[in-house]
Design a protein around this nucleic acid. Structure first.
Lengths: 146, 146
DNA sequence: CCTACATCGTGAAGTAGATTCACGACATGA
DNA sequence: TCATGTCGTGAATCTACTTCACGATGTAGG
């Protein structure tokens, strides 16, 4: 009889540790969690309007204004005019911003390798399967709960 | 060839979803993440000084003062004199606070059951094993990094 | 063309979490 | 009793985040 709650606690614990590792990255680069998150989205989506960033980060557009202000001040991004819509601005990474995003991506990959590199492929596949099923079960529960 | 980074992303994704579920709890009870976290610690440790809460939450004692102020105002905890140390106060859950903590614990257990209840014991055990190994590998890395 | 209406970003004002620094009240050991 | 450390909090400050209002711009419909 395996304790389901204990398993959930372990998942949460691991996530907490990974987040703490992200804290190290933030301190090294003089950034905050929210700003790193924005840079991450920017790296995944390319230059974006603040509206789309707000949607991706699940915060209000007004909040994105503040985050971008900070990243402009620290030299990580610039606001470029949007070709074809003079209302919008394209938040675009600078050279420094691009380097930071690359660092972020590679340190993320490094961490994954350090964590799971020694786990044999078959066991990792089984692990990922349970993870996938659980996540999908969760998604179904959320929809019902709405 | 399994992609380690993808597995890490899934772990993080699941943790994000679980955290979103916690948000539901917070809205239902008119609480915030930090205050729920404090109540959780209080439930696990029993009446505590603000110093020990600060250590458990990994925040400054000054911050705990503010969180406890809020929870006193909402009627979830009271400040009791510490027997044997007149400097310290024992943050103690009220009836409402105790009910809230019980709700929190049981909704956490319910969630674990909904997520992992349908996973067969043997597969779940294998899942938990990988999780455990990974967490311990992480702990070793953190110590070296210090 | 021009009038509605919607969208994009931002100023203003406010809340919560969190920090550092300073300080008074109390504990403790020499 | 005297020095030193600990416990909680006032004051000031920062970031993140929200709602509301508004000016500037885009997009149809008549």
């Amino acid at each position: 009889m395996t304790d389901r709650t204990a398993v959930l606690d372990r998942v949460l614990h691991l996530a907490t540790l990974v987040q703490a590792d992200l804290g190290r990255f933030e301190r090294e680069h003089g950034l905050t969690t929210s700003r790193v998150h924005l840079l991450w989205v920017l790296g995944a989506s390319g230059p974006s309007t603040q509206q789309s960033l707000a949607a991706a980060l699940d915060v209000t557009p007004r909040n994105v204004t503040g985050l971008v202000d900070g990243l402009v001040a620290s030299g990580h991004v610039t606001r470029q005019p949007h070709p074809g819509d003079r209302r919008a601005t394209l938040v675009t990474p600078t050279e420094l911003g691009t380097r930071t995003i690359d660092d972020l991506v590679s340190s993320h990959a490094d961490l994954a390798q350090q964590l799971f590199g020694d786990v044999p492929d078959d066991r990792l596949a089984a692990f990922a399967e349970v993870l996938e099923e659980t996540t999908q079960r969760f998604a179904r529960l959320m929809e019902e709960g709405t």
